[in-house]
Design a protein around this nucleic acid. Sequence first.
DNA 1: CTATGCGCGATCGTATACCACCTGATGGAT
DNA 2: ATCCATCAGGTGGTATACGATCGCGCATAG
Lengths: 237, 237
Amino acid sequence: MTTDPYSSSLQGVASQRVADILAGRILSGELPPGARIKQDELADELATSRIPVRDALRMLEARGLVVIRANAGARVMTLTRRDLEVSYEIRERIEPLLLADSVPHLTGEDLADLRKVMERNQGATDVEEAMALEREFHWITYRRHSTPLLAQIVERIWDTTQSYRRDYRKLAMGHTMTGAGRTHDVEHQLLYDAVAKKEVETAQAALVLHIRRTRAELARHSGVLANPGSGARNEAG
Amino acid sequence: MTTDPYSSSLQGVASQRVADILAGRILSGELPPGARIKQDELADELATSRIPVRDALRMLEARGLVVIRANAGARVMTLTRRDLEVSYEIRERIEPLLLADSVPHLTGEDLADLRKVMERNQGATDVEEAMALEREFHWITYRRHSTPLLAQIVERIWDTTQSYRRDYRKLAMGHTMTGAGRTHDVEHQLLYDAVAKKEVETAQAALVLHIRRTRAELARHSGVLANPGSGARNEAG
DNA sequence: CTATGCGCGATCGTATACCACCTGATGGAT
DNA sequence: ATCCATCAGGTGGTATACGATCGCGCATAG
């Protein structure tokens, strides 16, 4: 039970329940990018009718987790290498905004939580655990934001890129465990220190560094990761 | 007719048709922020059942145009002053990315279109016309992008802020028609010149200036515009 | 052997009817 | 005057049915 920064409450509403379950499966990698999602099948499995399933799919489309094509079904969102690259460029530019909005209002307890997660992360060896902790770490720094709009955009990007980050981590774990892993930890430490001291601009710089280096790392390895990039300029019907 | 980066055609699909109509009403201001949307009513009016209407509402929720609360109905998205401010800060940071991605690939015809729209805009006095031309102008500069993800985010922000921009323009038209209006035109000219010369960084700078100044202008007048801002830090169930 | 077109099945989209539940408002009791 | 209970409107969900559309395999032509 990780403290997922997303997870909406509302248990009684079937569509929300379906959406949560589906989102979990996508974010956990159980449903990989490109996987087809059949409405009947899912409705049957979750003991509900197709309407909540359809509603859930629309909700997930809103979050960028699935893509729906009329009469052709829903599939888990796929990103091209370029999309992934762009996602990081966007993060680099807007997450500092979210951070600056939150940091001044973080409490002592928030900082304690942050430190705890950071330290647990430094000892983590399991990919799933590391991903969850990484996510939690950053979202604690964003915890006291007052800009849901911005947070939603950021979260959406985290969600849509999650599967690809996982693929990378699994790949990287084999041969860079000590090198890249350590750098990652150092960056977290830098970010934590700046956040704890409420040095907003330093924290922003640390965050940008962190995101940019991760992007570069990911780009370096993206050759082996799948994806038939369509180098098309805009779309035309 | 703005160059919508997605806008699926598909006329046969009722839900898409409903979504398009609803989006039009919201963007035109016919349905102002906060307006309630009743499913039965809309279904009846458009001679369809509630299912396509629900689907359409979910689609519009995905675009950030409406907000759906379980059992409490759908309403046109409302932004607080803070949301509006943040929207502009986001635009300031990510639209230059989109611009840089597109400008190098703009054709001579694109530039001709751009110039045409700019000149028509300089003579426009009608608020609706000016808004449409403003939108078209910028989207022509983005026309040759290859990053639908980024374009989608940008378009979403344009959509959700449209009603508020309209309110401002209507307000400003009365007493700043010559002052602010001229500045606006000059900025467009600066952007156009840089784009035409394919000076990407200059164009980006001009764009940032344009967005930032618009934001400042809007903030200055936002006092009179509605909105009961909830100064709450994050949400808590 | 490859390419083109056809047709059928699997799914999706939509319609209808009905019940269950939530929300907001109305009105009465303290 | 404030608070709580009740009630209608409206949405969420279920069940069922049927037309429309897309993918894919198969037959046929080159």
